[in-house]
Design a protein around this nucleic acid. Structure first.
Length: 601
DNA sequence: TACCGGACTTGCTTGAAAACCT
DNA sequence: AGGTTTTCAAGCAAGTCCGGTA
């Protein structure tokens, strides 16, 4: 398997790789076989010594364009009077005025954080004058930006073309690197521009100034024997290092949370693809021992030790409900969200009886990205009793699992299976659900669109399991209505066509000539065609309605073993393009090449 | 064993491009 | 062709997990 994968990548990238980039490394066009052999061999080495590459060359990041001061006619007013700001202070106001239409500029925390950081950019004179955000009037600036973006939309074709070409040039120059013998696409070669931090959910740092990143902030990573990227004229990199134990090309420290940001390769790259493949192989290993693990944690529900019971109940949730591990977070630094191990008493409610069910647990908490998780599920009596025990003598804000954290849990999992961590359960349960749902929902005799609906439904089952949500699109209602109108029209068309068919049949009966016979055939075909069109529209409507608040993308990209989908396509004669778009096909190239129609996750 | 920095994956939103009408 | 709707990819925030250190 590993061998196949390496071969495939090599062959693919080879085709893309201009000869000059290879330099003296290999004459692959005549020595292809030798190259493949060599690559395979370092593949083996890589895994044993932990290094990620031998050769790495790139051009460094692209920086955000410098600030362009506003034209003099666009004024900022303080307390009703126009006031010219220094460039640094002015730049910050442009960030704010561009966001004026958003609700969060009205939020207290946002305004407070913004004002505090803005003041840091002011001259002492400005600082003494501008003391109250409510006396600031940004409306002219806001209008100006609206006009500008309007103008951008109205640009002529030539102007748009020019911008496109410039972007393409940047992509060609900075968007690729050479890692070992591959020319690889870089994921994010542009440095994030300065702006106001938003954050998700109720974030205590919303509105803070995300500062501009300069070359002096950037650490470059590349190999010693590569051509080092040049910093922009008159500047220096913070550091240039040669660490082949990591995969990133450049990094910097971001000023809001103090965390490190990286420039890394695109998902289509060898290094990411291999890691992805490995992830699914770990999940498949879990499949082999999940029964044993389940038996064990059920057993642990009876343990004498509290910590073991907590661990076992938490693992049960992670397995059954696909909850995330739930690391501890620093209070006050981020939005208050939780995962399994960090659940608090206030996040669950126990109902010994609810309607016709026994031992129901109601979950209600904010998870990753402050997405609400709400679920009511009946659990086994032992779990329920344990939960009652865990809740005893606790306040709402106390931890449900006070004897557990992700580190303890993962250490335990590691003992159960090599490489097992909490998130493997999500991958495993997502992929196995897809496989099983596809088996259940696909009818071999269905049309292609109907089969794709089945696929989407299987995908949706996973997205629901993993709680992948989205804000309903702003135009959802309208687009639903449009579709309904189309369906109604099609239905009218269909009844008209049916009438015509009936008439044609009557005519045939009466005249019994060749011509009328033909007409019947033509009309029959027409009815059939319209029926198909109608069916397609109805399928589309169903699919869309069911998908209103559910996001399929995350599971498709991160949790579903792509080989399951590839095999399904092969088995039912669905073109892979119907399931994966171009980017997705690039990301999953390894799977598309590897999986046959009988692949089993 | 608590804590923290570091590296890498996962997640939702949004702006731009493509596809689809009329 | 031009406008509208849909799809895609970029953007960037927020998780997981690991390993080193106090």
């Amino acid at each position: 398997m590993g061998y196949c994968f390496t071969l495939m990548c090599e062959l693919e990238t080879q085709a893309l790789l201009p000869l000059k980039l290879l330099g003296s490394v290999f004459f692959f066009s005549v020595m292809g076989c030798v190259l493949l052999f060599v690559v395979f061999r370092w593949e083996e080495e890589r895994y044993t010594d932990g290094s990620k590459w031998r050769f790495l060359e790139h051009k460094g990041p692209v920086f955000a364009p410098p600030y362009e001061p506003l034209p003099d006619k666009v004024k900022f007013y303080y307390d009703g009077k126009p006031m010219k700001l220094s460039a640094p202070a002015e730049e910050v106001t442009t960030f704010f005025s561009k966001m004026l239409d958003h609700e969060y500029t009205t939020k207290d925390i946002f305004r407070k954080n913004f004002f505090k950081d803005w003041r840091k950019e002011m001259t002492s004179e400005e600082k003494s004058k501008i003391t109250d955000l409510n006396k600031c009037n940004f409306s002219e600036m806001s209008e100006y930006f609206k006009t500008q973006s309007e103008a951008r939309k109205q640009m002529s074709k030539e102007e748009k073309q020019k911008i496109k070409e410039e972007n393409e040039r940047l992509l060609q120059e900075y968007g690729f690197c050479i890692m070992d013998n591959h020319k690889e696409r870089i994921g994010n070669f542009r440095i994030e521009p300065p702006g106001l931090f938003r954050g998700r959910g109720d974030h205590p740092k919303m509105g803070m100034l995300k500062r501009r990143i300069r070359p002096e902030d950037i650490i470059i990573n590349c190999s010693k024997d590569s051509k080092q990227p040049k910093p922009p004229p008159g500047t220096k990199w913070k550091e240039v290092r040669h660490d082949n134990k990591v995969t990133w090309l450049a990094s910097w420290t971001e000023n809001i949370q103090g965390s490190i940001k990286y420039i890394m390769l695109n998902p289509s790259s060898r290094i990411k693809g291999e890691k992805d493949w490995q992830k699914y192989e770990t999940a498949r290993r879990l499949k082999k021992c999940v029964d044993r693990i389940r038996t064990q944690y059920r057993d642990d529900w009876k343990s004498k030790e509290m910590r073991i019971r907590q661990r076992a109940v938490a693992l049960y949730f992670i397995d059954k409900l696909a909850l995330r591990a739930g690391n501890e977070k620093e209070e006050g630094e981020t939005a208050d969200t939780v995962g399994c191990c960090s659940l608090r008493v206030e996040h669950i409610k126990l109902y010994p009886k609810m309607d016709d069910q026994e031992y129901v647990v109601e979950f209600d908490f904010l998870g990753k990205d402050s997405i609400r998780y709400y679920n009511k599920i009946p659990v086994e009596k032992r779990v329920f009793k344990n939960l009652q025990l865990f809740l005893e003598n606790k306040q709402p804000e106390d931890d449900l699992f006070d004897r557990l954290n992700t580190s303890i849990l993962n250490k335990h999992l590691q003992e159960l299976m090599d490489g097992l961590t909490a998130k493997v359960f999500r991958t495993y349960n997502a992929s196995i659900t897809l496989q099983q749902q596809l088996k259940e929902l696909t009818c071999p005799d269905d049309s292609v669109p109907a089969k794709i609906l089945s696929y989407n439904r299987a995908n949706r089952a996973v997205a629901i399991l993993c709680n992948h949500q989205r804000a309903p699109p702003k135009t959802f209602e309208k687009s639903m209505q449009n579709l309904q109108t189309k369906i109604d029209e099609k239905q009218n068309q269909l009844s008209a066509a049916r009438k015509q068919l009936k008439a044609a049949k009557a005519d045939r009966k009466a005249s019994r000539d060749e011509k009328s016979k033909k007409t019947v055939e033509v009309k029959r075909k027409a009815v059939q065609r319209i029926e198909e069109q109608l069916m397609k529209l109805q399928v589309q409507a169903t699919d869309r309605e069911e998908n209103k608040q559910i996001a399929l993308g995350t599971s498709k990209l991160n949790y579903l073993d792509p080989r399951i989908s590839v095999a399904w396509c092969k088995k039912f004669g669905i073109p892979i393009e119907k399931i994966y778009n171009k980017t997705q096909r690039e990301k999953f190239a390894w799977a598309i090449d590897m999986a046959e129609k009988d692949y089993e996750f």
